[in-house]
Design a protein around this nucleic acid. Structure first.
Lengths: 193, 193
DNA sequence: CTTGAAAGTCAACAGGTGTTGACAAAGGGA
DNA sequence: TCCCTTTGTCAACACCTGTTGACTTTCAAG
């Protein structure tokens, strides 16, 4: 079957597999989970809808595959807390512009529980531990606040397309959001009543 | 037909009309536009699905009616700019907890263009002019930034249910978000490159 | 009571959905 | 060459969707 046993040979099916995944990401990101139909995804990938089922089993599994990507945060252990806000703002902005995986997640998280869990994995399960390393108090709360601003900005910029936000230059975004995130990371927690 | 001509008498149909609208708001808010089916809404209202069509014409028109509500911001003309952030934070928090209309809008805005436009009406078309009264520079940008933080927080709290954000006491929310909004309203705009 | 409009019920339509299974074309190993 | 795995195609399934039209019930005005 394969040229050399034990070698990693790309089979013909891998190409269509990848084509399906690419089309799925685009459709899920553009239309959301419910409106992105398997037939439309298959049409974009120029294959038969039955192939999608053969390779991914079901729509849910296809979505799970499309929403799976490496979101490992870089090691911020040596970044001083005061500048971490700006660093985070720039990092998320770059990630968001780079590929549409995050957009897929944001658009689908509103109705799809899998997407919510994966989104939570980024902030609660990745950012919070990073903050813990920096010995911040209430890391979960601070990670949640960072998430609220980052996701809210992404929502306005990429999904809703609010005019001044969607067209704002990257440097200006960092200049606005950086201090906000920095405050969420460094400001003393408000005294609770 | 009616007791007194010219009198405003509540017909029997008005009660079912209202029941449909209430059920629609709940379903749209809980499931989003696509997953909220007319049959489910009708079942909640304990009426026939055909009645929904008779009274609202179509699903889109029903949604438009469900997403229509008074979101007029109070007059913030005499609130000093420095405390406007905290006032805005508390105001939006109260509005969001009060009725689920805003939640309907947020959940559906991701896939429904009507909801996006209505959401924009709140921030761009209402908040920005209010800021203009206060003679702030770049009112549209600042209104957009406020929207990004308010919507992002609502997203994490009511839609995604991120643990520390969803359970945060109201006063603490205001303490965290107030200064952020205040900075978006008062801080000098970052110099653009 | 009679009449007729309003309010509600029922069954069906046309179209779209995810999903399945039977079948046909490659395409290389023996 | 034959054979068998892989890859792809086709048509259909069962179900659900918004929407429609014909029908019956309710009920107050005449």
């Amino acid at each position: 079957m394969l040229a050399y046993a034990g070698d990693m040979v790309e089979k013909k099916s891998d190409r269509t597999r990848a084509a399906i995944l690419a089309a799925a990401r685009e459709r899920f990101g553009a239309d959301g989970y419910e409106r992105a139909t398997i037939r439309a995804i298959a049409a974009d990938a120029a294959i038969d809808p039955a192939m999608v089922m053969r390779y991914y089993g079901s729509k849910e599994k296809l979505f799970a595959a499309a929403a799976e990507f490496d979101i490992r945060l870089p090691d911020f252990g040596d970044v001083p807390l005061e500048s971490l806000g700006e660093v985070l703002a720039r990092h998320f902005l770059e990630r968001w512009e780079a590929d549409d995986s995050l957009r897929v997640l944001l658009r689908t998280a509103v109705t799809n529980e899998v997407a919510v869990e994966r989104m939570r994995g980024i902030f609660a399960a990745q950012l919070a531990p990073t903050l813990r390393v920096q010995a911040v108090d209430q890391p979960d709360v601070r990670a949640g606040l960072v998430a609220s601003q980052v996701l809210g900005f992404a929502l306005c910029r990429y999904i809703l397309g609010f005019p001044p936000i969607a067209t704002m230059p990257d440097d200006e975004v960092v200049a606005w959001l950086g201090p906000t995130l920095a405050r969420y990371l460094t400001a003393p927690a408000p005294s609770q009543v």
